[in-house]
Write a protein that binds this DNA or RNA. Structure first.
Length: 480
RNA sequence: GGCCUCAUGGUCAAGCGGUUAAGACAUUGCCCUCUCACGGCAAAAACUGGGGUUCGAUUCCCCAUGGGGCUACCA
């Protein structure tokens, strides 16, 4: 029987969910799920200086919020815990000791000063294996004396390491290019280089899915798998997501934060869908996909090797697709927080505004700016009445408006359809194109060149009292 | 600097020796239309350069150029 696929997402708690990280998590999730496997969450918090309060919750929330439910993790449990590295310190110490016995690592007592003295003319530094020659007795004596130490990996001085990456193919690195990196820091905590290997093995990870930044350091990890006699995992390295041609999407530029996009009014389904498309394309030529669709369509040969640039314009479009696919109620619920920050909150029927806005916005964040002006009719430029096609201007507005006002005052059915039919007929009575009536009316009640909906939709929304009040105000402006 | 790696329109991205080199976003134009938007139709737009291999290279190989990564007691 084939072994069960187990993938993991192993972020450091930095306080925000990076979109690149989210994509890595997504691919790991998709790979596992499309193979009937398990997806595991592990928190890599070995760098205590980078500890951020509440950061782990951000990871939980982002993952679950996007539908990437993990089968094992700190908050959901599992048979391979603990799933937080800072709680596994003794495990690493034990394996480090074992690796030393196997000759794959050694204690090092070198001072920072000595290390710095190793820097050559080009500014490069490579550890010289100085402490490798220490005898066991000497090492024990110095440890007993309380001297601080680290544990370094013992990398062969010659030879070549080769492995097969499922995306990039055969990768070969000469050992001479690698350094005896620190595995256990002087504070007793492991570095990524070590914890990552120990945990992936102990947690039964079969497929390691991560960014290309690890492509050339993977031989170091394989050396450890081999030394312990463990089976190497399958490697799947992913190309980076860029902000532009030369910069990666980064925290620094504030353009990579999942939460920020949520605040701007992007839907999490759209974000997940969009990042899935950066670096992967399904066999079928489709772009809008649910998580379930993606599980069905996911395959490694659709993953590209080149970096891709994050294009917010396309994300906007996709987000718009999701918005238009929602039911009116779904959209209303999603839009409500944004509607409530608008100046119209409490003045008009938010549900009706929501229906008007649904086909007209690509992100929820655009909502307030699209309707704020609706709250009050202020002074506006009378040249807005100018319309060539309908042959209108301020003068025609002045002559048409009283009759329109009278009509609107006389009817009680303010539904869009009734208003449209009634005003069209009225235009006939007045001997003008219906477009002229609609244009003049729309400007008169909104004072805007562009509105989310036509004259009748605006009037229907405003209601009789407010409509008449605004027409009066416009007539006043016109006679100044 | 050394090593690893990548390279199709502005962007994402099909293609995997012979194609009119898909599709999507963005752009432009037209249609629909009570403005805008939605929707529909159409246009413009690409194989980084140079050598090979081959009857034939976007596709395979090499070099150059350009981009990214690694070179930490960060991950």
């Amino acid at each position: 029987m084939e072994e069960t696929v187990r993938t993991r997402f192993a972020p450091s708690p930095t306080g925000f969910m990076h979109l690149g990280g989210l994509r890595t998590a997504l691919y790991a999730y998709l790979y596992a799920k499309s193979h009937g496997g398990k997806f595991i969450l592990r928190i890599e918090d070995t760098d205590q200086q980078r500890f951020v309060e509440g950061a782990i919750d951000v990871i939980y929330d982002s993952l679950k919020g996007s539908g990437l439910y993990y089968d094992e993790g700190p908050d959901v449990g599992g048979d391979y815990g603990p799933y937080v590295q800072s709680e596994r310190k003794e495990i690493y110490a034990e394996y480090a000791k074992k690796l030393i016995e196997l000759g794959g690592a050694y204690y090092c007592f070198c001072s920072k000063e000595r290390l710095e003295s190793l820097t050559d003319a080009n500014g490069n530094r490579k550890y010289d294996k100085h402490c490798l020659s220490l005898t066991k007795e000497e090492v024990e004596k110095r440890i007993a004396a309380g001297e601080p130490y680290v544990i370094r990996q013992n990398i062969p001085t010659e030879g070549t390491s080769t492995y097969e990456d499922l995306i990039y193919g055969t990768i070969s690195i000469d050992y001479s290019e690698l350094e005896d990196n620190i595995l256990i820091k002087s504070d007793g905590m492991p570095t990524y280089n070590f914890a990552n290997v120990i945990d992936d093995h102990l947690m039964g990870i079969t497929h390691v899915i991560r960014g290309t930044e690890y492509l050339s350091s993977t031989p170091k990890y394989n050396l450890m798998y081999d030394a312990f006699g463990w089976k190497r995992p399958v490697y799947i390295h992913l190309p980076p997501i860029m902000k532009d041609a030369t910069r990666k999407l980064s925290k620094r530029y504030g353009d990579a934060n999942f939460d920020d996009f949520l605040k701007k009014g992007y839907l999490k389904e759209a974000i997940i869908n969009y990042v899935a498309l950066l670096g992967w394309s399904p066999k079928e030529n489709v772009e809008k996909m649910s998580l379930q669709d993606m599980i069905r369509l996911f395959s490694l040969d659709g993953i590209s090797r080149s970096q891709s640039i994050f294009d917010e314009a396309k994300l906007r479009w996709l987000n718009g697709e999701y918005i238009r696919a929602m039911s009116q109620d779904e959209f209303y619920r999603a839009a409500l927080p944004f509607l409530q920050t608008s100046a119209v909150n409490g003045k008009f029927d938010l549900k009706r505004i929501s229906a008007l806005l649904q086909p007209r916005v690509e992100t929820l964040g655009e909502i307030p700016e699209k309707i704020d002006w609706l709250a009050e009719l202020g002074d506006y430029d009378l040249s807005l009445f100018n319309n060539k096609k309908n042959k209108t201007d301020a003068e025609t507005a002045k002559s048409l408006l009283p009759a329109i006002r009278e009509y609107l005052l006389s009817v009680d059915d303010y539904s869009n359809d009734a208003l449209f039919a009634g005003l069209s007929a009225k235009a006939g009575d007045l001997g003008v194109k219906s477009g002229a009536v609609f244009w003049v009316l729309r400007i008169a009640v909104t004072g805007q060149g562009v509105t989310p909906g036509g004259a009748t939709e605006m009037v229907s929304l405003l209601g009789k009292e407010e409509t008449v009040r605004r027409i009066d105000r416009s007539l006043e402006l016109l006679s100044r």
